[in-house]
Nucleic acid binder design. Structure first.
Lengths: 193, 193
DNA sequence: GTCTATAATTCGATAGAC
DNA sequence: GTCTATCGAATTATAGAC
């Protein structure tokens, strides 16, 4: 049953995501979050106990990956990259997680879980050997999180300048290889004109 | 001319790199850095003015990339990846930069400069069109910084478990393609068995 | 050069009136 | 549920004795 305070709670979480994403865990103050939500700081404590609890609630995140089980194997990389690029711009949660992960172990745990539970199965479905799924999901993480880091946190100009189609064209073959390539196959494919 | 206090300054910088790398900019306190350097906290202030100045001094970083001008074009990715993997384990500076970049704009500037000034020329030398060098260096940054993030900061188990040879085998073709591939060439090369 | 003492902030968290 | 007032802790930074 919806509580009367649900609107307030939602406003707090939205403000928290915004501040955590923009400033990181340490610099985002409860006072600033409360101000942005136009609410009293003590309400935040009342609802979420402490700053860590607030972050945990704000950093709830699902990739909502589509079912790639029926996708043509050759298009898995492309579809996964497309979904990632789209998902990041829906809200600030992943950027907040990324920024907070530097000092908050709970943020790291969340990111770990996302790739293990949400990307892992995709890797298990498409890897030559399902036992390699964790390693392949990890490699996907290095590229996708690295892209998000450079684009949204570090704001490296050449990376920010890429539009989504360009970014997808560069990243999709990488992800495709991490998910499906046999070790050392195609290791030098890129060299051929 | 070397000052008498140079040994002290070096000890402070080494301790600073260690604490910044382990805890990030906010959580690494001047007190803790001074304690690790076995020196009085006020000395740190005396030498470096403030925490920001200390960080700037500690985050001086050079990749020391070898000259890849004479390298076989097909091996540029492999060599660059090998050098990166080796360089990270020499000291904590890059990890410190990565951790601090979340809240310190000066750390971001440093990272930007590293890729623009140190990786950019490699890209300019080997890209089909030198005008694309910044974009290609940026793509290299997404993968190499993403790998460092997952391995040293987030410590994702499957990524930590890779030994250097395995990591290089996976990453080298990616970097090779970002540096040298014509757009859309080899986009589906990884699909072939 | 080195250390003590402390100023000046800032923030998370709590107590309690209404 | 909401707000005021404030505590207590931690930190950067400074002033000044030795």
């Amino acid at each position: 049953m919806p509580r009367r305070s649900d609107a307030t709670r939602a406003a707090i979480l939205a403000a928290a995501r915004e501040r955590f994403a923009a400033d990181g865990f340490e610099r985002a103050t409860i006072r600033a979050i409360a101000a942005e939500a136009r609410i009293d700081p003590s309400m935040v404590m009342r609802y979420y106990g402490n700053k860590e609890g607030l972050f945990a609630a704000a950093a709830e995140f699902h990739l909502h990956l589509p079912d790639l089980g029926e996708a043509p194997p050759a298009e898995v990389g492309e579809r996964l990259v497309g979904h990632f690029l789209h998902r990041w711009e829906q809200d600030d949660t992943l950027v907040a997680l990324l920024r907070a992960a530097v000092t908050q172990e709970s943020a790291v745990d969340r990111i770990r879980a996302i790739f293990a539970e949400q990307v892992g199965p995709v890797a298990a479905r498409h890897a030559p050997d399902p036992a390699e799924a964790p390693a392949r999901a990890g490699l996907v993480a290095t590229q996708m999180l690295g892209f998000a880091l450079c684009r949204y946190v570090l704001r490296l100009q050449p990376v920010v300048a890429l539009d989504k189609a360009e970014a997808a064209a560069w990243l999709a073959p990488t992800i495709q290889r991490y998910l499906t390539a046999t070790v050392n196959s195609d290791a030098s494919a890129a060299d051929r004109p």
